[in-house]
Design a protein around this nucleic acid. Structure first.
Lengths: 218, 218
DNA sequence: ATATAAAGTTTGATTATTCAAAATACCTGT
DNA sequence: ACAGGTATTTTGAATAATCAAACTTTATAT
């Protein structure tokens, strides 16, 4: 059985792999996303390679194997279902659930997980708008526009928030930019690094490009 | 912070301490209840003593300190609240929740725990009838009779099942001996090592003394 | 009182995970 | 082509938890 550390590495590598160009994740990225020093990442990745969960090319990077990807998607399903459960059933705030789910995803049995899934009515997205993989591992991955590249002056719906840090989610909450909210992008000024928005509730606000790119719309 | 292993040792020592004569738990008991070899128990207990969670007397045994007892009661609260939550909210069967709670009690935050407590209406007993310590650590510990020492021919209510093994709970389930059920003890034959019961649903059955002593009534 | 058994402790090793710091490889710009 | 810089890997050491097996105490039984 995979230890909780192994599960963390695999999930994180999967997430990094998604937005990598060549499908390889560098040791530097692995180290940063797991909060360890580079040497630790190298050591650990080599041991993941021994367990056939990743392919490791020295001085190039890692890539998940079939088995690794399966495990990663399973962890993602756990994580997101738990997040939704914490919000829906236990009434926690969506900006405080990430860390919580991070711990619980290693402790909950399949039995309990499927019970949660049933109770929630087999949901498709978590509170951040991230898709929940199905039990068989399917992940609907239509690609969404973000506030930095979507059409201007057109009503759009917020679908997903891709930064799960508590700080960012609290900002999102305060500004009323939760998934489901309707908005229009009025203008983008690259020199000012700013995006001007108009919310359906009448509020207008300006966000930086970096922040805007973390908010996906459809 | 206490590791999950430390939490397990402390909880188990607490449980053993309750039914010990002199308040000391031997290394043998510690080893058995944690499923490790005796040498491991000795080593670990010495390290618990370093953290001031127990007092350890070589060749005599361990006893929890104030701090240790506090931690133990907190773990018991977690364990029992989680068990009840799994049954009430997730609809799991009470005979299959012990292992589950054993894992979750280390992973759940105080925040989530108190939310569960609120949702369940600050319950006083878990699905096995075991008392749930209050947030401040109070544990109602009235002493109950069991089927091996209670009055005969007197209607009584099952209050608590003290063996949490899946095997025993399934037997309890099948025989209709769950907490809350009313019964009468008809006779006890020490030679036959048998206790004859009559349930309020009309069923009669015979259990061994050892099994009967695991069923508490009031 | 002494041999034996039972319980507890010690010692030496192992596994998983991590870090610090030294060593190595790979680029990149001139 | 080479000097520097950056990324990566290696090495050596640490911590937490465990086991097997040798050893020591303590209690028991004749």
């Amino acid at each position: 059985m995979a230890t909780s550390t192994v599960e963390d590495y695999i999930k994180q590598i999967y997430l990094e792999q998604i937005d990598s160009i060549d499908g390889f994740v560098t040791m530097g990225r692995v180290a940063i996303s797991l909060g360890v020093v580079p040497g630790t990442a190298t050591t650990m990745v080599k041991s993941l390679a021994d367990s056939e969960l990743v392919n490791y090319e020295p001085r190039v990077g890692v890539r998940l194997t079939e088995a690794g990807e399966e495990l990663a998607i399973q962890m993602l399903r756990r994580h997101r279902l738990i997040e939704l459960f914490l919000v829906e059933t236990l009434g926690l705030d969506w900006s405080e659930i990430h860390e919580e789910a991070e711990k619980l995803e290693h402790a909950i049995s399949d039995r309990v997980l499927e019970q949660m899934d049933t109770l929630l009515g087999h949901p498709k997205v978590d509170p951040h708008g991230d898709p929940i993989p199905s039990e068989s591992g399917n992940l609907s991955n239509e690609l969404l526009m973000n506030l930095g590249n979507c059409i201007l002056n057109q009503p759009l719906n917020i679908a997903r928030i891709t930064d799960q840090s508590s700080e960012f989610l609290q900002f999102v909450n305060k500004s009323g930019l939760m998934p489901g909210v309707e908005l229009t992008v009025l203008k983008r000024e690259s020199a000012a690094d700013a995006i001007t928005l108009h919310l359906s509730n009448g509020m207008s606000l300006v966000v930086g490009t970096l922040a805007g790119e973390k908010i996906l719309v459809e």
